[in-house]
Write a protein that binds this DNA or RNA. Structure first.
Length: 114
DNA sequence: CGATTGACGTACG
DNA sequence: TCGTACGCCAATC
């Protein structure tokens, strides 16, 4: 049996996270929903816990919660890293929150679902 | 080895 | 409309 079918939820999260295009952002819930486990949004964030340890690294800064809040900024090297990275990609951040969130939102369901 | 926690989100009163 | 409860599953205490 191919192990490709045995990849855990984490691996799938990593796969999707790496597909997030430059200058775009998505939410934990969006990824979870795309994977078919809408209520496992927490696990998406949990997966990001070791994102920087992976190779290639996962653009965890492009993943925010459903309201565009930089809920995971505290887990970066410095609390400002996440915001800096986003602004570097042309995404405006105001008070730990993404401005025009829906405008920069990248929905894996809409983009990847065929 | 059982209980708690955690980068979230939805359901329900 | 707002506040509280629960689910999700792995890692840590």
């Amino acid at each position: 049996m191919p192990k490709t079918l045995d990849i855990s939820f984490f691996e799938q999260v990593y796969q999707v996270a790496r597909l997030i295009p430059y200058g775009k952002i998505t939410s934990y819930g969006a990824i979870a929903t795309y994977l078919g486990t809408a209520k496992s949004a927490r696990m998406v964030g949990w997966a990001m816990n070791g994102a920087h340890k992976l190779d290639p690294p996962i653009p965890a800064h492009r993943v925010v919660n459903r309201i565009g809040l930089l809920s995971g900024k505290a887990h970066f090297e410095t609390p400002d890293t996440m915001q800096q990275l986003l602004e570097n990609e042309g995404i405006e951040v105001k008070d730990n929150q993404v401005v025009e969130f829906t405008k920069h939102f990248w929905n894996p369901i809409q983009e990847l679902k065929l």
